[in-house]
Design a protein around this nucleic acid. Structure first.
Lengths: 342, 342
DNA sequence: TTGAAAGCGCTAACAT
DNA sequence: ATGTTAGCGCTTTCAA
């Protein structure tokens, strides 16, 4: 029924191992026999059986991704899937497959343990959202090839990759300064929101680089929700003088921020510039369309794949790195200001 | 190094096949030996090698998903990933894995061919977005276990599953009627947008069921964009009498529709009810929050998994089915109207 | 440059 | 209820 290597060997009048070598492009095979065997393979519609190859080589050519995928994850966190898409694409180019495995932070460690023990994948990718201490310990102890997508919020020896949010913050600040904004404020998430914290750090840095700075009264932190974005903006607007631009750590906060500004009839961008991060999910449809520091999460996934393949070759190698994949997309929530006006 | 079945057999003082039977819960094994062997397995930290199992059984226990995953797909089409998440979850419960494979409609057929030939998955799931005639032909010819997520827009013998958009449309109409709306209009996508067409069909049906109907002047079709939503609404508002409620075939159209109503100072829901489909991505943040017919795409993924597992057992079985997974979420864009007012 | 043969670790038919 | 044994289809060392 199914045509195997044996059939090819017989039909080609060569040995099994010769066929195998042809399949794998082994150097020792003469061009003559190689082309001959290949022709036979075509004629017979031969394709090597993937399962048998995996078994014989002791590899799966698969990377398994552990991630939280509760209901509506794709809506609340499209970033994650965009990273996944980038990961998959880059792996595919190297003939690796990506297996999806939903789980949560409590069971993830057990899941990983089984994968490692059963050798049902060549490497594990873990979305930072389900990272835990036990999992971290397991990965470092076993030295099983892995990479965490996003920096863990606790110190650990695992391999991870993350966007350089600090740098993105710096970009935001530099951009606003270049437009002539002078009194720049920041609305961000709470202490456990590392992304926001880094962006804040970056904004400070960027302002400093430009000879400016970020006063405490212009920094407000809260939940990353529309409601808190609104509240923080209200608090911010009680400060005197008003800022002339606001950097929102994310889209949700920006949404509330814009609401509050509109309610108070503060015009964007005439009276107030607004910048946020990520071109999605809402920044496009907010009125006015927001200027954003776009983060190419997909390319982060691609970078992760690259590193992972390195790690598969050298399982003891440790990688902890930030990647910079952002750029400013200017829309209508900012504009050049006459210098000296503020 | 790695502990195999052989080691377990030796340590337990039984044969290889006994261990295998214990692993697979074969009925013929006495409880006594079963528990004994299991203890040994624990002690030795034995886990069956997945690759060897796959090879020996001739199965991969994997389903591979072919889908278009260009840049930003996760943002433009979170539905797809929500379906994927549902598919994965349901497969996982049955000890199957989901492999992601990005591709496009032109190369998908070749990809599928290789998967089938190499037997590198037990079944193929195809997102309808990359469906093509050759792929359809391949799947039906080979009878390889498969399911298409979404109904192909051409007639074919492949297995597919899709949401019952007609029924969702009926729900929208029935809901509006129950609220006392009487002059209901529909804004939808163009002819090739089957989802929209079905929803329109459903609305007509629902109105008919309620003793009402949908006049042609209340039906406007265009691109599924905010801009066209705006335009269609303008056209609609030239009709006399005005409708008292509008059903928008999707979120993009709804966005433009609401813009237009606001520009004309037509109050929602006082002067005009608005309903759309899908709780995402924008319906939550539109002002006012829209009443929607929510489509549980994730559960469609789960259903797809169920059918797929059936199909794996019976490869010649054909399934073409609509699943109903919707319900109305009432928000602020509709409200009860005094009967007889219109 | 090619071939022979020994696995890879498990399953499953068959024998006991 | 348990054990024997023959594969599953390929890779890879080693010998020719």
């Amino acid at each position: 029924m199914k045509v195997t290597m044996k059939d090819v060997a017989r039909a080609a009048g060569v040995s099994l191992s010769t066929v195998s070598k042809v399949v794998n492009g082994h150097y020792s095979i003469s061009e003559e026999t190689a082309t001959h065997v290949k022709r036979i393979m075509e004629e017979l519609h031969y394709y090597p059986n993937a399962r048998a190859q995996n078994f014989a080589t002791g590899k799966t050519k698969e990377v398994i991704l552990l991630a939280g995928m509760e209901a509506n994850t794709a809506f609340h966190n499209p970033h994650m899937f965009e990273i996944i898409a980038g990961l998959e694409e880059a792996l595919r180019r190297k003939d690796y497959r990506l297996v999806l495995r939903g789980t949560d932070s409590t069971e993830a460690c057990g899941v990983a343990e089984e994968i490692i023990s059963r050798q049902s994948a060549d490497a594990i990718a873990v979305h930072v959202g389900i990272m835990s201490h036990p999992l971290s310990a397991l990965l470092t102890k076993t030295q099983f090839p892995h990479i965490v997508l996003g920096m863990p919020n606790f110190s650990s020896q695992v391999c991870w990759i993350d966007n350089n949010n600090t740098y993105s913050g710096t970009m935001a600040a530099a951009f606003l300064l270049s437009k002539g904004y002078r009194r720049i404020a920041f609305l961000g998430g709470l202490y456990y929101d590392l992304g926001s914290a880094h962006r804040l750090e970056g904004v400070k840095q960027g302002l400093k680089n430009g000879g400016s700075h970020l006063p405490d009264q212009y920094i407000w932190l809260g939940e990353s929700t529309r409601a808190d974005g609104y509240r923080m903006t209200c608090n911010l607007l009680e400060q005197r003088p008003h800022p002339d631009a606001i950097v929102c750590a994310n889209n949700y906060i920006a949404l509330g921020c814009v609401d509050a500004l509109k309610d108070r009839r503060i015009r964007i961008p005439e009276d107030m510039g607004v910048v946020t991060f990520d071109d999605y999910p809402f920044s496009q449809i907010i009125e006015p369309p927001l200027t954003v520091v776009d983060i190419h999460v997909r390319s982060m996934g691609a970078q992760a794949a690259k590193h992972l393949l390195d790690i598969i070759r050298h399982p003891n190698m440790q990688i902890q790195t930030y990647v910079t994949t952002s750029n400013v997309i200017e829309r209508s929530s900012t504009r050049s200001r006459e210098l000296g006006k503020g």
